[in-house]
Amino acid sequence: MIATMNEVLILSGLVFILGAVCAAARRNLIMILVGVEIMLNAAGIALVGASLRWAVLDGQVFVIFIMAFAAAEVSVGLALIVFSQRRTKSVNADSFSLLRG
């Protein structure tokens, strides 16, 4: 079965919205990080689709970059979460509110 460009973009948009809602609605830091990962993957889907549509490999190359970037981001993000969990005994995002005005 051959997916059209529109279908790829709709999938990408849906995945992105799912990720965004996940990141914005959840209070658990790990789930927020998962949401961010999903958004990145949504962008990857769109890039692959575009790469197929115009037959240019750059889009796929970019997806590789995004994956590497995501891996690095997750490792730093998880380290931060572990650190903050040790300090405050919590992974609830709302408990980090020192910058409240």
């Binding site: 965004a20 927020i32 995002a93 709302d94 980090f96 509110s97 910058l99 409240r100 005005g101």
Partner: peptide, 21 residues
């Protein structure tokens, strides 16, 4: 003056993300 707009800065990550979106 600042008292009128200080409620925007809740210090909560989810609020900021929601506003960004």
């Amino acid at each position: 003056l600042a008292a009128g707009i200080r409620f925007w800065t809740t210090g909560k990550l989810s609020t900021y993300l929601g506003m960004l979106f």
